[in-house]
Measured scan of single mutants.
Amino acid sequence: MLYVKVKTEDGEELVLEVEGMTEDEIREELAKAGFKIEEIEVYEVEP
C-alpha cells in the first residue's frame, strides 16, 4: 500500500492512500480539490 502524508499551508495534516500515482499527479489532484500544499511525504506500507 502506498500512502502520502500531506501538510497544508493552514497546518492541516492528511494521510491519503494512493495507488499508481506519481507525486506530481498527487499534487495536481489535491490542487484541484482546493488544497494548498506545503509538504508531501510518500511512504509504502507492507501488508
Rank of each mutant, 00 (worst) to 15 (best):
K32A: 09
R27T: 03
A31V: 13
T8Y: 09
E41S: 10
K32T: 04
V45Y: 14
E13K: 03
K5W: 13
K36V: 07
E9K: 15
V42Q: 03
M1A: 09
E39G: 07
G34H: 03
K5T: 06
A31I: 13
E17D: 04
I37G: 05
E46N: 13
G20R: 08
D10L: 07
L2T: 09
A31R: 12
G11E: 01
K32R: 09
E28I: 09
I37N: 07
E38R: 14
K36F: 07
G20Q: 05
G20W: 14
G11R: 01
V15E: 04
K32D: 03
E29I: 15
V18L: 06
K7Q: 06
V6S: 00
T8M: 13
G34S: 02
L30C: 06
E46A: 12
F35P: 00
E9T: 12
L14A: 03
Y3E: 03
I26F: 03
K7M: 07
G11P: 00
D24S: 12
E44I: 11
I37L: 07
E28S: 09
L14V: 07
G34F: 02
E41D: 09
K36P: 05
K7D: 02
E39M: 13
V18M: 11
E23T: 10
F35V: 06
V4L: 03
Y43N: 04
E17A: 13
G20N: 10
E23W: 12
Y3P: 01
E9A: 13
R27K: 10
V42M: 09
A33D: 03
K32I: 07
E17W: 15
E23L: 15
G34R: 00
I37V: 11
I40E: 01
E39R: 08
E44P: 09
L16I: 09
E28W: 08
E28L: 09
E28H: 09
E46R: 07
G11C: 09
V42D: 02
E41N: 08
E29F: 15
I26H: 00
L2P: 02
M1E: 03
Y3F: 10
E19H: 14
D10V: 04
Y43A: 04
K5P: 01
V6W: 05
E25W: 03
G11I: 01
E39K: 11
K36Y: 06
E29D: 04
E28F: 10
A33M: 15
L2C: 07
E44C: 11
A33L: 15
A31G: 09
E25V: 04
K32L: 08
M1T: 13
F35R: 00
E39S: 15
I40G: 02
V6F: 12
K32V: 05
Y43P: 02
G11M: 01
K32E: 05
V6Y: 07
M21L: 10
F35Q: 01
V42R: 05
E23A: 13
M21F: 08
G34A: 01
E44H: 13
E13R: 04
E41P: 02
E23V: 14
D10W: 11
D24Q: 12
K36Q: 06
E38I: 15
E46F: 13
I40R: 01
E28T: 11
E12R: 15
G34Y: 02
I37M: 08
V45H: 12
L30E: 00
V42S: 04
T8W: 06
T22P: 02
E13Y: 15
K36L: 08
L16P: 00
Y43E: 03
A33Y: 15
L30I: 05
E25D: 06
L30P: 00
M21Y: 12
F35T: 01
E13N: 05
E38F: 13
E13V: 14
Y3Q: 05
V18P: 00
E12W: 14
T22N: 08
D24E: 12
G34D: 02
E29K: 12
V18H: 01
E29H: 14
E17G: 07
T8C: 15
A31C: 13
V4K: 00
T22L: 04
R27E: 03
V18Y: 15
R27F: 07
E12N: 11
V4C: 02
D24R: 11
V6P: 00
L2S: 10
E41I: 14
L2D: 02
V4M: 02
E44G: 08
L2K: 15
Y3K: 07
E38W: 14
E29L: 15
E46T: 09
I26Y: 01
K5C: 06
G34Q: 01
E44L: 11
A33T: 06
Y3C: 03
A31Q: 13
P47G: 10
R27Y: 08
E19N: 11
E44Y: 13
V42K: 05
T22K: 03
Y43K: 06
K32Y: 05
E12K: 15
A31D: 04
R27P: 00
A33V: 07
E19L: 13
E17N: 08
V6R: 00
L14E: 01
M21E: 04
E17Q: 13
Y3T: 08
E23C: 13
T8H: 03
G11L: 02
L2W: 14
L14G: 01
E46K: 11
E38D: 12
L14D: 01
V4Q: 00
E12T: 13
E46P: 13
E46G: 11
V18Q: 01
I40N: 02
E17T: 12
I40C: 10
G20T: 05
I40P: 01
E46W: 14
E23F: 14
L14N: 02
E38M: 15
D24K: 10
P47H: 07
V45F: 12
V4E: 00
Y43W: 13
A33G: 04
M1S: 10
E12S: 12
P47C: 09
G11S: 02
V45K: 11
E9N: 12
D10G: 08
E17I: 15
V42G: 04
E9H: 09
L16S: 01
L16G: 01
E46M: 14
R27N: 02
I26Q: 01
E38G: 10
E19T: 15
K32G: 04
K36M: 10
K5H: 08
G34C: 06
E25K: 05
L16N: 00
E19Q: 14
M1L: 14
V15T: 07
E19R: 10
P47A: 07
E44D: 10
L16E: 00
R27L: 08
E28P: 01
V15Y: 12
A31W: 06
E44F: 11
K32C: 08
T8K: 07
A33S: 07
L2V: 08
E38T: 15
D10N: 11
M21V: 06
Y43L: 10
A33P: 01
Y43R: 04
E25A: 07
K32F: 05
T22Y: 03
E17F: 15
T22Q: 03
